[in-house]
Design a protein around this nucleic acid. Structure first.
Lengths: 211, 211, 211, 211
DNA sequence: AATGAATGAGCCTTCATTCAT
DNA sequence: GATGAATGAAGGCTCATTCAT
């Protein structure tokens, strides 16, 4: 009578993947606190005890999700960058493109990774922030490298700003799909222009100064 | 009597302010879901039924908080901009400075307004997003105005990016207080450089193009 | 339509007493682990949250029960002894009589206090053992006092044995009510004979020696 | 392979012994309710279904444990008594000594048998009480025999008291190992003095009478 | 204007127990 | 002879919310 096919007795690895997929969807939809283990188990097509048996507590489950998705996203970006010896602008462009592409293809993963799914003070806050910092450090590296010995002053602030801009664009694209300028390539290009040309000219010390 | 804490029979407006102040603190500390009405009532120094009587449900209370704080923040930014007929760059600078100043002075308000306190799916998501959109629209207006008839193509995307960059910087400043570059003025200057010089050169059609 | 009278909105103290009465009954019936907060709440005629609001966790509730019942039992025994300057045998007799009387009148309280309700390792094990030790020390005092400077050697062991004998008799009386020799007075007399005459002759160094 | 821990395909009797040994340890450590089948299976080095296959439910398992350990303890005591035609005091002494010795050597068994592991209401309460009754009856027999036709009135009560005293001393010895008077021989002697000299004088109708 | 008393509903977690191989 | 996979049922605890005063 309708409903999903009841395929029982699967090997553990398969079940674990199913559960984590379900978990990512639920956490993305409701956030960590509001997501319920009941719903996750149901969506995964298993009973709740099995989730606890395989993945541990709710917190451990969420941490596992974050770790898995972070690794995937970082891997996708790294694969996009390909060659760390290319010129910085090419690296940045390739990374941005890979980022926006991945995020467009895995919206739930992105929601879980971005701050929207959890709330500060949650014990895995840093688990998730680590990825952000890793990316920010990478970007800061690119900036520093491109600017040579230039004003290394606010490199960290600039990196934070750039990462925030990327997140914001990704969210915007995810929230208004189909709007002009929200395709992965367009978003990447928009941000590249915003960032690069600006940063490039900062080097030539063409700075804007407060009135 | 005397210095005792139990000051009853206050006029409604005062009580409401107390409650909302307490609510903002709690929501900022724990996030919407984790904040408890018990704690809010206790922090406000009133009984729980009074909170329900005056402010309605938890959701309504949170919406009210967001509305109040959003109005305050927008007001501060508007007051900072002062004169909408000044040149666009001056307006942007003034707005950024007012924003970072306000945020530094009202950290709880900012936490509640930024995405960190709530989780998507909550019914007030748009209530809070409205403010973001309002700011984004303002910024988009400035950009469009500055660019004249230039390529208005990705004005909205640029605005999103800029707002995201500002949020990210504000969060960064809030999380690492005292770090170099996190004062309101420095943050505003960092972002202004990042944004304006880039945007300015976009006008001169000095665009970076994908390889 | 039948059922208990629904007397709501009682003052807190009354409710707390009701709850603890119910708790003592449940803990006596099933032991700490097997007793469920649901059943306790139902038996008390209130909802579960109220139990938690007033008495805290299950563990705190049990500790409170033990404390209350221990105080009551110790009080009854103390009241029975009346005058600590009377001869030791009179004190012991009065104490035993009071003990067996109280235990016969409050069987649930006795079950909760005796080891039968909890299991070693439970966090309140010592909370409950304290009472046992208090009684054992009192008895040991009597013995020592009666024996004068005699063989103070195994006073503690003797006290342990006497307390155990009393517990055992009390359990036996509780489990087989109506059997000959199980009335409070008879039980007390049995134990008094068992203990006193034996102990009395120990003084005269009429000791039995291993073959 | 080789010295690995996985020794499969053992004969049923061996497996059963392993399981029951593990069960006794777990039940002694945590009590009936708190002991988990998972832990027992793991400690026995087998999978959970095997436990169920061989020993049935948790309750049956516990009953089996009690039965086995009770038989062993009773056997030890019986072997200690040796000759039921010896004088009563020698029999009692031998029995007590055997009891305290066995208990000192098998602490887990004693915990499981004494009331400390289970909580009343459990269906095996009588299974365990049977052993107690058996011992009490034996003691009562000794007392009756020694008293001749004397006042057989409270023989059963005296037996209960003596058994309780023995249990209490055994517990005390188990809980405070190494304390003076807690060796098997000392404990047995203490109790023998306490009991026998008292009982012996009861025969001479040297009774203490309530004031 | 204000509160002490009370609860329905839900959530995380665990455990004894059983299939199917 | 032995096990990996799986679950129904229940238990402790909390929370937003309301009633009666």
């Amino acid at each position: 009578m309708g409903g999903g096919a009841k395929a029982r007795r699967l090997p553990r690895v398969v079940r674990e993947r199913q559960m984590m997929d379900a978990a990512v969807r639920c956490f993305a939809r409701h956030g960590y606190q509001a997501a319920s283990m009941d719903e996750i188990a149901e969506l995964a097509g298993v009973s709740k005890p099995l989730v606890y048996l395989y993945l541990g507590s709710k917190e451990e489950l969420f941490t596992a999700c974050i770790r898995r998705e972070a690794r995937a996203l970082l891997g996708a970006v790294a694969a996009g960058v390909e060659d760390r010896s290319r010129p910085a602008d090419e690296q940045l462009w390739a990374g941005l493109l890979a980022f926006f592409t991945y995020v467009a293809d895995h919206p739930d993963a992105w929601v879980v990774l971005s701050r929207r799914a959890w709330t500060q003070g949650e014990p895995f806050a840093d688990e998730a922030s680590r990825m952000r910092e890793e990316i920010a450090a990478f970007v800061a590296g690119l900036i520093g490298e491109a600017h040579g010995g230039g004003s290394g002053r606010d490199v960290r602030g600039l990196a934070q700003a750039l990462v925030g801009a990327a997140e914001s664009l990704a969210d915007w694209a995810a929230e208004s799909p189909g709007a002009p300028g929200t395709s992965a390539k367009e978003a990447a290009a928009t941000l590249m222009n915003f960032a690069w040309v600006g940063l490039g000219n900062l080097m030539k010390s063409e700075r804007w100064s407060p009135p």
